[in-house]
Nucleic acid binder design. Structure first.
Lengths: 202, 202
DNA sequence: GAAAGGAGTGAACCATCATTCAGAACTTCC
DNA sequence: GGAAGTTCTGAATGATGGTTCACTCCTTTC
């Protein structure tokens, strides 16, 4: 046996894979899933098309990885905001704000994650992440009901409504290249979201 | 000139086109846009693949027609409910209910119209119809504000939130083949939708 | 330095469909 | 009936884009 991967070599391969994923993410954010061909992604990463298959068994697998990484980051951030100490309604409000701000700061990626047409494997992943978002929102809504700050309601349905409402309100601005009043939009969206779960009007 | 289309012939061609559109709609409702190939649709209509091009210049044109017909019907129904006489909030509530009931009665089609992956031309049409739904909801919300039954709010944003909330709440049940408590779901969804626009709790 | 084997290349391959087209079948009209 | 024109057919065509593979290049080990 005259060959065994040395640690440095393993690190180099990992780095290459990492670089591929991050370049692919950029391409997707720029041109969308449908235009992100294997060769476009490979070009962006500075490797040959065939080399993609050194790291992933198929284009779909790479796409899923890209989605999971990016969506996972966002979900984690929102989870942290929702699990921070403080009033449930306050945390909910902050989470909506953070979600919207991050989406509007990275529109291409946000659009790709939220709404852009994608192959079935990515679509399935999207459903899964929506489920997780719903679980997070639902938890917060239940806490709000427990502390009496939110009226009795079906937390699961409210969470779904929240997810849909936030997404739909953002989709239009995400398409436009430069929206005028981002701050206003975020404020109105937050108010609207709170109204959806029946938070008392201030 | 030894040939001119006779009225009967014109009627036959129109009927064939009609049949093609309706068969294509069924196929799309059954298997989704991505699986609705030209030959699958032609088979369903009992004609050859090539004959599709007698009626439509491209597959995309046929798909757009299918979408427009089906989505147009729904939009019209909702428009009628929202423009019927009565209290704005009452009409809004009824419209949400009708929308949900119709979607749940025709799940495959509803899913295709609302959420299923589709080619860009259909995606564009979907955006257009969402815009029209938003306009309808926004009008009702404005009327509600005018009569003092709804609190002051940005009607456009609320309408977008409503559209998103309703869609997202329905998407899951639309995927499941047989949901248990359709009536309950519709009732909860209606309540949630009204809460989103700040209707007074009853 | 040289053998052994993995990594990288990119042109060729292949599957999938939308689309076309030459001819068959049918309609109209004299 | 037959000429002229139209609709219909379905196999061939063509475009796209993911995947493979024979080959070159590089790294490891002795």
């Amino acid at each position: 046996m005259a060959y065994r991967k040395t640690p440095a070599e393993i690190a180099r391969l990992d780095a290459a894979r990492e670089r591929l994923v991050s370049c692919a993410t950029e391409v997707v954010a720029d041109v969308g899933w449908s235009q992100a061909s294997v060769s476009a992604v490979a070009d962006a990463a500075g490797i040959a098309a065939g080399s993609v298959y050194q790291h992933f068994p198929s284009k779909a697998a790479l796409a899923v990885e890209v989605f999971r990484r990016a969506a996972g980051r966002e979900l984690e951030v929102i989870g942290e905001v929702l699990h921070a100490p403080g009033e449930p309604v306050e945390r909910l409000s902050r989470a909506v704000e953070v979600f919207a701000r991050r989406a509007l700061e990275n529109r291409g990626l946000a659009y790709a994650l939220l709404a852009a047409p994608a192959e079935p494997a990515v679509g399935a992943e999207r459903l899964e992440f929506r489920r997780r978002y719903r679980a997070l929102w639902a938890e917060a809504v239940r806490e709000g009901m427990a502390t009496g700050r939110l009226p009795e309601q079906n937390a699961e349905i409210s969470a779904a409504a929240l997810t849909g409402a936030i997404g739909e309100v953002l989709v239009d601005p995400l398409g436009a290249p430069e929206e005028s009043a981002v701050g206003d939009l975020i404020a109105v969206l937050t108010t609207t979201a709170l109204r959806c779960v029946g938070a008392p009007r201030d």
